[in-house]
Nucleic acid binder design. Structure first.
Length: 828
DNA sequence: TTTGTGTGGTAG
DNA sequence: ATCGCTACCACACAAA
C-alpha cells in the first residue's frame, strides 16, 4: 500500500474548523453531508466532486476504475472515506448500499464476518490494497491478486456466532466479552487508570496537594454514535437519527446522536421502543477497535495541548484536564483554552467533536459540561458563592453526580415531586427536612448533596485531584456475566466456575497480587419471572445473592480458588437451571512478594497436587504460592458463617431439584480417554456426587446431624488470653480426634456433609492462624489413617473423603510447612 | 465500640 | 435474536 499516492485531504469541503459558536453545522461533516444525497443525485455529485477537486488542485487522475462499481464493507485501511474519494477521483462509481438492483462489480473489505461472507458469495471481494496499489502503479491491477479468501476468518466467525449463545462453550467468556459494551467500558477504564498511575509514578512529577486548578471536563458528544457513524459512512450524523446497538428488538441502545434524542430516544432504551418514537432511526453496530483508537488520539491530543498539569482519565471518551490557576486566569483566557483544546482533539482525531465544561471545581466543570453540549463549551468562573449557587440552581437533582435513579426516587418519596436543585435547597433550610433527607438517602449521601448545593467538591473528588495515584489504584478484582447463562446440571456450573476462576486468576497473577477473600455472586431467576425473559438470552428479573469466603491465607492458587467457588455455589443452593448470572470477586488484595512470584513459576512447571500426592516418594507438596508472612490473629469469627447465612436466608424458598448425571461412570468409556481427562472426569463426578448427597440430605431427608452444633468459647489458656478454638464443641485435640474417627466411620458409605467439612476446614485454618501446626498435623494424620482403614471397601463415601483430603486438607497442611519440620507421605 | 458480611447504588 | 460490566462507596445488621 502506498500512502504517498493518496491525495492529501485538504479539500475545501472538509477542512472547516469546528464551529466554536456551538451552532448546528460542523465543518467536517460537510463531506459526509455531501454524500448523504440519494443515490442518483450522488452519481452526479461524484462527478462534480471530481471536477471541483481536480480544478482546485490543478491535477487530473487516470480513470483507472472507469466502469467499475465498488462497495466498501466494514473498517478498512485507508478508511472508507479515503477509499471513496480515491475511487471517484479515478473514475469509479462508489456505492453506499448493496441494493439488489444495481450491480456492484467489486467489494472492498479487510475482513468479512460469516454472514456477510456468505451473502457476498457472488461478488469479487478484494482488499483495499487493490485500490491503492493500482493507483500507485498507475494501472488497474488484476483483482484476483488482492482477493480475500480467508476460510479461517469465516470459521472463526461461525463458531463465535454459536459460542455466544452457549455458555458451556470453552470460548464463551472470551467471545462474549469481545462484544460486550459494558465489559469494554470497564476494561478501558481500568487500562486508562493503570496507565495513568504508571505514567505518574515514572514521571516523578509531584502533584502538590495544595495546587489550585481550573478543571476542564472534556467529553465526546455521543462517542459511540459519532465513531460508528463515521466508520459506516452512510449517514450524516447531523440530520439522520442514529443509535448504536447490537440487535433490532429488545436490545440496548448504548449511544444515540442528538437528532435521535430530539425524538425522545435516549441511551439505555430498547431498540423496539426507540423505533416507536422515531421510525427513521438508523441502528449501527459497535466498532470497539475504532473507539479505542480514537480514544488514544483523544488522550494524546489533551496532552499535546500542553496546558494541563495532569489529565485524569474518567473513561474511554471522558477526561478532566487540570490547569494550574495563575494570576492571569481570566474568562477570556479560559475561553481561548477551550477553543484550543477542542481544536486539538478535532485535528488529531481528524474530525471528532468534544464538548468542554470549565470551572473551578470538578463538580462545576461537570455541570458546565452539560451546558456546553453538544459540540461546544461552557465556562463557569465565579467570584462569589452566591453566583455559584445560582448556577447550581439551574440544574436538576439527577444532574448531580451520585444522584441516580434510585436516590432521586427516594428524595421524591420524601418530599413529593421535587426535581430541581433550587427546590431542594429551599426545603433544606429547615433542619427537620435535613434529617428527613438523611433518613431517606443516608448521611453520607445527604452530606455530599449539601456540599454540591454549594458548588463544592465532595471528599472523593478532592482525593482524586490531591492524591490521584492512590485514587486510581485498583483495590479489588471481579468478573461477572449476566447474559446467556443457562445451566442444566451442577456439572455445568462447576465447569463454568472453573473457567471463571481461571479468567480472574489470570488477572490476579498478571497484577502480581494475592487475595484473601472470595465472593461468589449469583443472579437467580426471581419468583414468578418467566423462564424465558423478554430479552433474548437475557437474565430477566432476578434476585442477587452472594456469599463470601475468607481464605486461610493470602493466596494466588488457582486450585484453591476454583474449589472454593464450587463450595460457595453449593452453600448458596441455587438450582443450576435457575441461575441467570454468575460473578466472582476477589477482595483484600495484597501485593505478592517478588519471591512468591518466582515460586509461582516453579510450581506451574513442576507440581500439581493430585500428581504429587500420587507419588509415594514425594514429601508433602510445598506451599509455594501463598503468602508466608504471619498474619496478625486479630479477631476471628468463631461462629459458623454458614449458620449465620441460613438464619438470614431461611425465608428464601428453596425449590427441590434433581441433578441428572449417572451414578456410575461407564468404565469402558472412561478407559478410552486420556489419563488426565479421566482424572478430571472422576473428580467432577465425585464433586457432583458429593453435592447430590449434600443437597439431598438437606432437602429431602431428615438431616442426620452426626455431631452437635458448634459452640463459641473463650477462655484463658496457658496464662494468656487466647481465643479457645473449638470444633463441634470440642476443644482438646484428643477429643476432636475421637470425633473425627466416629465421623469417618459414620459417613464412609454416604460421604461427609459439605457443611461439616466446611466447619472442619475453618477450624484447621484458625489453628493455622495461631501457628498450631502440630495439632493440624495430628488431626489430619488421624483422619488419613481412619480413611485408610476403609480402603479395602469401594464405597462412594471413601472416594469423597479422599477427595476432601487431597483437595482441601493438604493445602491447609502445606500452609503450615514453614512452622514445623516434617515429612508426610500420602500414597493414595 | 469495632469488625465483618450481604446488599444496594452509581458511573460510564 | 443479542453481547445486562465492574470498581467502589455506603449502609444495615450481626457478632464480639
Amino acid at each position: 500500500m502506498n500512502k504517498e499516492k493518496v491525495p492529501d485531504r485538504t479539500v475545501s469541503l472538509e477542512t472547516a474548523e469546528p464551529d466554536m459558536a456551538s451552532s448546528s453545522s460542523i465543518g467536517y461533516l460537510g463531506y459526509a453531508e455531501y454524500f448523504h444525497n440519494k443515490e442518483l443525485q450522488q452519481l452526479e455529485s461524484d462527478v462534480q466532486y471530481r471536477e471541483k477537486y481536480q480544478k482546485e488542485k490543478g491535477v487530473s487522475h487516470p480513470t483507472l476504475f472507469q466502469g467499475l462499481t465498488i462497495y466498501v464493507n466494514g473498517r478498512t485501511d485507508p478508511t472508507r472515506f479515503e477509499l471513496h474519494k480515491l475511487i471517484i477521483l479515478h473514475g469509479g462509481t462508489f456505492k453506499h448500499y448493496l441494493s439488489g438492483k444495481t450491480a456492484v462489480t467489486h467489494i472492498i473489505a479487510s475482513e468479512l464476518n460469516a454472514s456477510k461472507k456468505s451473502s457476498f458469495a457472488n461478488y469479487k471481494i478484494v482488499g483495499p490494497g487493490w485500490i491503492t496499489e493500482s493507483i500507485a502503479r498507475g494501472k488497474l491491477l488484476p483483482w484476483q491478486d488482492f482477493r480475500i479468501v480467508n476460510v479461517s476468518v469465516l470459521q472463526g466467525k461461525i463458531t463465535d456466532f454459536a459460542t455466544i449463545r452457549n455458555c458451556m462453550d470453552p470460548n464463551f467468556i472470551h467471545s462474549y466479552f469481545k462484544s460486550s459494551r459494558l465489559h469494554h467500558l470497564s476494561n478501558w477504564k481500568f487500562q486508562l487508570r493503570d496507565q495513568f498511575v504508571q505514567d505518574l509514578l515514572s514521571s516523578r512529577g509531584e502533584i502538590s496537594p495544595n495546587q489550585k486548578y481550573v478543571f476542564f471536563h472534556v467529553d465526546f458528544d455521543c462517542f459511540f454514535a459519532q465513531v460508528s457513524a463515521k466508520i459506516d459512512g452512510t449517514y450524516d450524523i447531523h440530520t439522520v437519527p442514529i443509535a448504536i446497538s447490537h440487535g433490532i428488538n429488545n436490545s440496548d441502545i448504548s449511544s444515540c446522536n442528538y437528532v435521535a434524542r430530539s425524538f425522545g430516544v435516549h441511551n439505555g432504551m430498547w431498540v423496539s421502543s426507540a423505533l416507536k418514537l422515531c421510525p427513521a432511526l438508523k441502528i449501527l453496530d459497535y466498532e470497539f477497535d475504532e473507539y479505542e483508537a480514537i480514544s488514544n488520539l483523544f488522550y494524546q491530543a489533551l496532552k499535546s495541548v500542553g496546558i494541563f498539569k495532569m489529565v485524569l482519565p474518567l473513561s474511554i471518551d471522558e477526561a478532566i484536564g487540570c490547569m494550574p490557576v495563575t494570576s492571569d486566569t481570566t474568562q477570556e483566557l479560559l475561553t481561548q483554552k477551550c477553543i484550543q483544546v477542542r481544536a486539538a482533539v478535532f485535528d488529531l482525531t481528524q474530525g471528532y467533536s468534544v464538548s468542554i465544561g470549565c470551572a473551578s471545581s470538578v463538580l462545576l466543570a461537570r455541570l458546565a459540561l452539560r451546558k456546553g453540549k453538544p459540540n461546544g463549551f461552557s465556562i463557569s468562573w465565579f467570584s462569589t458563592p452566591l453566583e455559584r449557587r445560582a448556577f447550581v440552581d439551574q440544574f436538576k437533582l439527577k444532574d448531580l453526580p451520585g444522584i441516580g435513579y434510585s436516590t432521586d426516587q427516594k428524595i421524591q418519596e420524601t418530599f413529593g415531586e421535587i426535581h430541581s436543585i433550587s427546590a431542594l435547597r429551599g426545603l433544606l433550610e429547615s433542619p427537620n427536612n435535613v434529617s428527613k433527607l438523611i433518613k431517606a438517602i443516608g448521611s453520607k449521601n445527604a452530606k455530599r448533596l449539601q456540599t454540591y448545593l454549594d458548588g463544592q467538591d465532595d471528599d472523593e473528588s478532592i482525593s482524586m485531584v490531591k492524591d490521584p495515584a492512590s485514587y486510581f489504584q485498583k483495590k479489588s478484582l471481579s468478573v461477572e456475566i449476566n447474559y446467556a447463562i443457562r445451566f442444566k446440571t451442577i456439572d455445568d456450573v462447576d465447569t463454568f466456575l472453573e473457567r471463571l476462576s481461571l479468567y480472574l486468576w489470570e488477572k490476579l497473577k498478571d497484577s502480581n497480587l494475592l487475595t484473601r477473600q472470595i465472593t461468589l455472586k449469583l443472579m437467580k431467576r426471581a419468583q414468578g419471572a418467566p423462564v424465558d425473559p423478554p430479552k433474548f438470552m437475557g437474565m430477566g428479573k432476578c434476585d442477587a445473592i452472594s456469599k463470601a469466603s475468607t481464605l486461610g491465607s493470602n493466596t494466588q492458587k488457582y486450585g484453591s480458588i476454583a474449589s472454593e467457588c464450587k463450595t460457595l455455589f453449593r452453600i448458596l443452593s441455587v438450582p443450576p437451571a435457575e441461575v441467570r448470572g454468575i460473578g466472582l470477586q476477589f477482595h483484600r488484595l495484597t501485593a505478592a512478594t517478588q519471591a512468591s512470584g518466582q515460586k509461582l513459576e516453579q510450581r506451574r512447571i513442576t507440581t500439581d497436587i493430585f500428581k504429587k500426592a500420587n507419588r509415594s516418594d514425594d514429601e508433602v507438596v510445598r506451599r509455594v504460592d501463598e503468602d508466608t508472612t504471619p498474619r496478625t490473629p486479630k479477631s476471628t469469627t468463631y461462629a459458623s458463617p454458614v449458620k449465620n447465612y441460613w438464619d438470614r436466608h431461611l425465608k428464601r424458598s428453596v425449590t427441590p431439584f434433581r441433578y441428572d448425571f449417572p451414578d456410575e461412570l461407564d468404565p469402558e468409556f472412561m478407559s478410552n480417554l486420556p489419563k488426565d481427562v479421566q482424572e478430571e472426569i472422576t473428580s467432577h463426578h465425585s464433586v457432583a456426587k458429593r453435592a447430590k448427597r449434600t443437597l439431598r440430605t438437606e432437602l429431602f431427608e431428615e438431616p442426620k446431624k452426626q455431631i452437635k452444633q458448634t459452640q463459641d468459647l473463650h477462655y484463658i489458656h496457658d496464662g494468656r488470653l487466647v481465643p479457645q478454638l473449638s470444633f463441634q464443641g470440642l476443644s482438646s485435640a484428643k477429643q476432636i480426634c475421637r470425633t473425627l474417627i466416629d465421623w469417618v466411620d459414620a459417613t464412609i458409605d454416604v460421604g461427609p456433609h459439605e457443611k461439616d467439612l466446611e466447619l472442619f476446614v475453618n477450624h484447621l485454618n484458625k489453628l493455622a492462624d495461631q501457628r498450631r501446626s502440630h495439632i493440624i498435623l495430628q488431626l489430619i494424620k488421624t483422619l488419613k489413617n481412619k480413611i485408610d482403614d476403609h480402603y479395602d471397601g469401594n464405597s462412594e463415601g471413601l472416594e469423597q473423603w479422599e477427595y476432601f483430603l487431597i483437595r482441601r486438607l493438604i493445602p491447609v497442611l502445606n500452609k503450615t510447612k514453614s512452622d514445623v519440620n516434617f515429612n508426610l507421605v500420602f500414597d493414595l
